[in-house]
Amino acid sequence: MSTLTDLRIAAVGDIHLGEDVRGQYRQRLAGIEDRADVFMLAGDLTRHGTLEEGRLVADELRGLPIPVVAVLGNHDYHSDLQYEIAAELRDAGVVVLDDEGVVIQCGDRKLGVVGGKGFGGGFAGKCASEFGEREIKNFVSHTRYIAEAWKVALKEIVADERVVLSHYSPIKETLEGEPHEIYPFLGSYLLAEAVDTAGADLILHGHAHKGSEKGMTPGGIRVRNVAMPVLGKAYAVYCLTCDPGCA
């Protein structure tokens, strides 16, 4: 049971909605306002990243009684319509983060959310470097750019609690269950390093359907893989207990 000082975060990723399941996910969100103060979506909201699917997702999320914050995932980028999909979601009242932060007022508490899609590259000791062919350099520098943006946003944001919302994973632990060979395409330690440097209370990500729910960064920040196939439910709820005196 939640106490008055708990900040309740409902979260899910990889809902992969399409026309054949229109309306079904929305039914699962009935009563979410009784369970949570804010709803976060960790990317891969669509299957093919088409505008039609983006509109469908917007319809499913429109008018929810609690704030909704989302990032996009690699599927949502597939048709090169990520900006248009984000615009559809914003029109439906969803806050879409693209390597930036937002402060959500939850009662008398300020929840800072920083995030974006994230990217891959692998994990410390077994990762790609900015060396050699231009294509490899571009791959790694893209992740490095994102990690730096998150670090700056986390340092600048003024909030009682800070949550990072990503699609790609910042750690290996929540990938357990996936083939080791594809880890570099599932996340990057650069994301965790940035968050550990700037500080946060929780990191949420998706992307790894066969991964594990719970992990922790080297700096001790809790990480949760909220991909729907991992959760096996419409969303999970995480309660952040407020530090004494912060409310």
């Binding site: 939640s2 708990d6 996910y25 369970r35 439910k233 419409a234 999970a236 709820v237 995480y238 309660c239």
Partner: peptide, 11 residues
């Protein structure tokens, strides 16, 4: 299967 949300996790 998107089952009903279960127990909250307190962090």
């Amino acid at each position: 299967e998107a089952h009903e949300p279960g127990e909250d996790e307190h962090l």
